[in-house]
Design a protein around this nucleic acid. Structure first.
Lengths: 259, 259
DNA sequence: ACCCATTTGTCCGTATGTATA
DNA sequence: ATATACATACGGACAAATGGG
């Protein structure tokens, strides 16, 4: 059974040679796979391998780098993971355009300090202020109905001392939906999934006035926003939304300065 | 040399058995890798393997599914590509929370019609109007200097009949950077990489006034924005940016109605 | 400070199936 | 129908990182 060892041993030897022969290379690329990945990544990114064109075949890459098939396949697997290439069975591997990789992301480190949360809130102010204005112009009767239901849900949650976050967020999301512009709702949804699970800061208890009066004020601000959207008054809707979110921002700033 | 065939053959047989033994399973998972990937994916998504907890070791997975390590490693590679797990050398592979997967993306189908481009422009109005206001409050002398340089670059490009898009976009991006809030610049960068490569619609030639006078007007609008930011007049900066982008939107609407 | 077991990472080889031209 | 190239498996050996004793 272990007769297989013989070729393996030989390979280990012929393997060690090229790895040691280039110690002058950038020390970052520690392994053969990494070397191949970085080389191909760079060639794709700097345009030497243009999008939608075929990469060299696996055997050609094997020869170019003097590595085994496994290394090449592992390298291509990494490139696929990074969305730099796409492999089509029996044809070859093709470079993808960098656009198809790009996205907008907020990482976990963006939630560490109060200043981080304020920065996110500024983005929300930017997004939602305009969304409220557009919603005032374009809302359908169905949008208004849903908003009203959500306002009612919020009131119920306040009275029952239940969690108000879901109906609060749902109201804001419905405003975004009422713009008729997918992107507003999409961005809001994304921000919601990022922000909601971390309600350490900016909780009800941060309000000096006490939970109940704070939530009642929030509800009142929501109603002001709703009325402006209902009356198709874009300027008033924008102003109401800006006031609403700016209040949260001020509260956070106060909490920050008290630390 | 070809003595190696013996174990391989045996494996092929013992391999075929479990694959055929469960024809009742969902027919989608054709390969062994797919089987492992789906099983682990499900266990992560339905919470059986909780976020931040360790998956079984590679050897354990090999035994559980009766597959080789190659299959296991390939499967884990797929899970990494889907951002479901993260592997730490010498420790193990850990499940990630779904949040870490979420992102905001604009797909290619969002560029097909003029209405799509208008929708994107509305998002830009939302983002950049507020960014201009914040920039007016927070811009550093370096920001102002860079903006001035970019305005000059734009003028030069106009005179040389060169491509004005890079300096145009760079100016807008610099405004976003001057907010001091990473998210504004990040989102602008993302939108830029998505929009810039597709300058079919909204090209200079769409302007009825002719390329030169159109570009001169754009330059004038940029200067108005710059002056407001320079004078730290947030309201004026917001208004100037809104006017600037609303002009583009109007031009697109006109082009759309003429189709 | 060191070793050691565990676990993943890197490397090699081979056989066979499958899709495309 | 053949040749080419990729897909999917198997196997083994050694390197490197980590954590505990």
């Amino acid at each position: 059974m272990n007769l297989v060892q013989t070729p393996t041993l030989m390979n280990q030897i012929s393997n060690g040679v090229p790895a040691m022969a280039e110690p002058t290379r950038m020390r970052r690329a520690r392994g053969l796979v990494n070397t191949v990945v970085e080389n191909l990544s760079n060639r794709i990114r700097n345009g030497e391998i243009k999008p939608a064109t075929k990469l060299p075949t696996e055997s050609e890459i094997m020869l170019q780098f003097d590595v085994s098939r496994t290394v090449v396949r592992e390298a291509i697997s990494h490139l696929q993971a990074n969305r730099l290439v796409e492999t089509r069975h029996g044809i070859g591997t093709f470079a993808l355009s960098p656009q198809e990789n790009a996205n907008f992301q907020i990482s976990n480190v963006d939630f560490e300090t109060v200043a981080d949360v304020i920065a996110l809130l500024e983005l929300r102010i930017s997004l939602e202020t305009e969304a409220a204005g557009l919603a005032a112009q374009r809302r359908s009767p169905e949008h208004l109905k849903t908003m009203q239901n959500l306002l009612h849900d919020f009131e119920t949650a306040v009275q029952n001392e239940a969690n108000t976050v879901p109906s609060d967020f749902a109201f804001h999301l419905e405003v975004a939906k009422a713009t008729g512009n997918r992107h507003f709702a999409d961005l809001m949804t994304y921000l919601g999934t990022m922000v909601i699970p971390r309600t350490r800061v900016n909780t009800d208890n941060n309000a000096p006035e006490g939970r109940l009066s704070y939530l009642k004020r929030v509800h009142g601000e929501h109603e002001t926003i709703y009325n402006a959207i209902h009356n198709q008054d874009a300027d008033a809707a924008r102003a109401a939304m800006r006031t609403h979110l700016s209040n949260s921002k001020d509260r956070l700033r106060k909490a920050q300065s008290e630390l």
